[in-house]
């Protein structure tokens, strides 16, 4: 059981949790993730680590409620507990002094991008960050990112904040304006990562992407997270989650993310119904049956 120390809503359906996880807090490095199981009957879902406090033994997870599990998680309050948290998993980000590093975050992808940008800055890189969101309300961690970036550009699809457009438009503008970029890191929705990576390939910018495929154990055992990178099968949990974005077979990866679309829809609808009829507001004892 991992107690939630703090809970904060960052935007519509986006919540930050600060959770007790002492071993993860002291061992995690940028780029790594955890797997959580919200309740006793819950599924195991991978979540990236947004931050950690080794002294307090806590980690921060930023979660967008999209399916049944993340919605159940959203109902938890400070003082409640998450049934299981395991990690840190995956390989840490490869950090070095590249020169100028472009960090591109889309939506909730800004959460895992934050520790990477921070570490890139600490590794004496010139950090330029582009954050993209559909609309202003969905933009997260702007202040945190600003602190660890030398330059920060915000784009929104609807123009409600920053520059109207997509992150790819901002990258083009940046490079068109004569900025040389030595390395890019992109984390966000799969389609955004795909198109960003197509562009940086065209522009000749080496790019890392952090993948978040379906996983169960996170230790190499199930093979559910397999992705094709450079024509080879890789397991995101033990070989990744970061890969050379230019070599990732994005279409296959995106398709595999949709494996359980029907099941997820049914579960989410059931969850909605239960919330509406009051089951969902019964609090943590409903979500976490006592052991």
């Amino acid at each position: 059981m991992n107690t939630i120390r703090k809970r904060e809503e960052l935007g519509p359906n986006v919540t930050r949790y600060v959770i007790d996880a002492p071993l993860v807090a002291t061992h995690r490095k940028p780029g790594q993730f955890v797997i959580v199981r919200v309740s006793d009957h819950g599924e195991r879902i991978p979540l990236t680590i947004a931050d950690a406090d080794p002294e307090l033994g806590t980690i921060s997870l930023i979660v967008q409620s999209v399916g049944k599990t993340t919605r159940e998680m959203a109902m938890l309050r400070s003082g409640d507990a998450i049934h299981d948290v395991v990690g840190p998993l995956g390989r840490p980000t490869h950090l070095q002094q590249f020169g100028t590093v472009l960090c591109v975050g889309g939506g909730i992808g800004t959460a895992p991008l934050y520790p990477i940008a921070k570490a890139m800055k600490e590794a004496h890189n010139h950090v330029i960050t582009i954050l993209g969101a559909r609309t202003r309300d969905l933009l997260i961690l702007e202040d945190d990112m600003r602190r660890v970036s030398d330059e920060l550009i915000v784009t929104t699809d609807d123009g409600s904040y920053g520059t109207k457009g997509l992150v790819t438009d901002a990258i083009r503008a940046l490079v068109g304006g004569g900025t040389h970029i030595d390395q890019a890191v992109v984390i966000g929705p799969p389609l955004m990562m795909k198109f960003t990576s197509l562009l940086t390939k065209e522009l000749g910018i080496p790019t890392m992407a952090s993948l978040n495929p379906i996983m169960i154990d996170g230790t190499g055992m199930c093979g559910g997270c397999r992705v094709t990178v450079g024509g080879e099968m890789k397991f995101a949990c033990v070989d990744g989650p970061e890969f050379d974005a230019h070599k990732v077979d994005w279409d296959s990866m995106i398709r595999r993310l949709g494996t359980y679309r029907t099941e997820e829809k049914t579960a989410a609808e059931r969850c909605d119904h239960e919330c509406r009829i009051g089951l969902g507001t019964r609090g943590p004892e409903w979500i976490l049956p006592t052991d």
């Binding site: 009957h41 599924e43 599990t69 154990d217 093979g223 077979d249 595999r256």
Partner: peptide, 30 residues
Amino acid sequence: GESLLGVYSANEYLTRANLMHAYDENSDTP
């Protein structure tokens, strides 16, 4: 074709069914 949807390793298939009780309607694991 091993990346197609509906292709499982036995480990994944059995883990979903056994450890995660996917055979049970009340389990959240699909």
